[in-house]
Computed example of a mutant assay.
Amino acid sequence: MKYSLSEMMCLDIYTSSLSSKEYDKIKLQIKPSTPKFMPLLSWDIYSQNYFKTLKNLKTESDIKMVKAFAKKAKWKNEIDTIFNNQDFDALIITDAGQKIVWVNEGFTKMTGYSKSFAVNKKPHFLQGINTSTKAKKRIRNKLHELKPFTEIIMNYRKDNTPYECQVKIIPMYSDNVTHFLAIEKQVV
């Protein structure tokens, strides 16, 4: 007799309650129609899709937050164009004076610093002993030009471990530049 998977699960419960002698009497009559163990590959595929979906939802949520800032500040930037095919770990919005007004959860995950710690600080608290003075100077100069740019800089996490970070900074403007959006990705 062949059994379905659900019948096999019930049968497993039943057979686990039998003594060895009782089980020996019936074991030859039990023939599963499916393998006893499901291949892990099927669960791996589900797991990969699940985590990819979660990441996409977090990305969408982050972009919605940036759009909310854009609406409130009446930015003229095309937000959808900014994020078109853009992969990121962290997002930071600063005011025109470069004080942080918002960071996403990815910022905390990448740096170890909480949102509440980062807000009202300038991003230079992420820099440390091996942060290139040339890179810092290039960033300062490019910020004054008020044009989008990308730079790679050595930053430091809260636990003081260094990491290379690709920073894409975009001036956000209504009539004038009111904020900067930093799109950050750890360089591996």
Rank of each mutant, 00 (worst) to 15 (best):
E151K: 12
F88P: 02
Y3Q: 05
I93A: 03
E151V: 15
S4I: 08
E60Q: 14
P171K: 05
V187M: 12
A182N: 03
M38N: 11
V66S: 04
R138C: 11
P35L: 03
F51E: 13
N130F: 06
I100M: 10
L181D: 00
M38I: 13
I92V: 12
Q86H: 01
P39G: 06
L181F: 04
E78V: 13
K115Y: 00
K27L: 02
K55F: 13
T94H: 05
K168I: 09
K76F: 08
T161S: 09
E145R: 14
W43D: 10
I63A: 08
S19Q: 01
Q48P: 02
Q186E: 13
I169V: 12
G97T: 12
I13H: 00
Y3P: 01
D44C: 11
T131W: 11
T161N: 07
I82N: 00
K142D: 14
F83N: 01
T108K: 08
K27G: 00
M65N: 08
I93N: 01
N49H: 12
K136R: 14
I139L: 15
P162T: 07
T108M: 07
T53K: 15
A118L: 01
K147I: 14
K55L: 15
Y156C: 06
Q186F: 09
I79R: 03
F83K: 04
K158A: 05
T178N: 00
R138H: 13
E60P: 01
I100S: 06
K21P: 00
N49M: 12
Y23S: 00
F88H: 04
D80A: 04
N176T: 04
A135Y: 12
S33A: 07
D87I: 05
Q186S: 10
Y113V: 05
N77C: 07
S61H: 11
D95P: 04
A135C: 12
T34N: 03
S17Y: 06
G128L: 12
A96E: 05
Y156Q: 13
T34R: 10
E60T: 12
R140P: 09
Q166R: 13
I152A: 08
P39A: 08
E145Q: 15
E60Y: 08
V188H: 11
A70I: 13
K31E: 06
V101R: 13
Y23V: 01
T133Q: 15
P148W: 11
Q48G: 06
Y3G: 02
N56A: 14
Y3L: 06
T34L: 08
S33F: 10
L18Y: 07
Y113C: 06
T111F: 03
L41P: 00
K136T: 15
D87V: 08
S6I: 07
A96M: 10
I26K: 02
K72G: 02
S47M: 13
T53L: 14
K71T: 11
F51Y: 15
F107Y: 15
R157I: 03
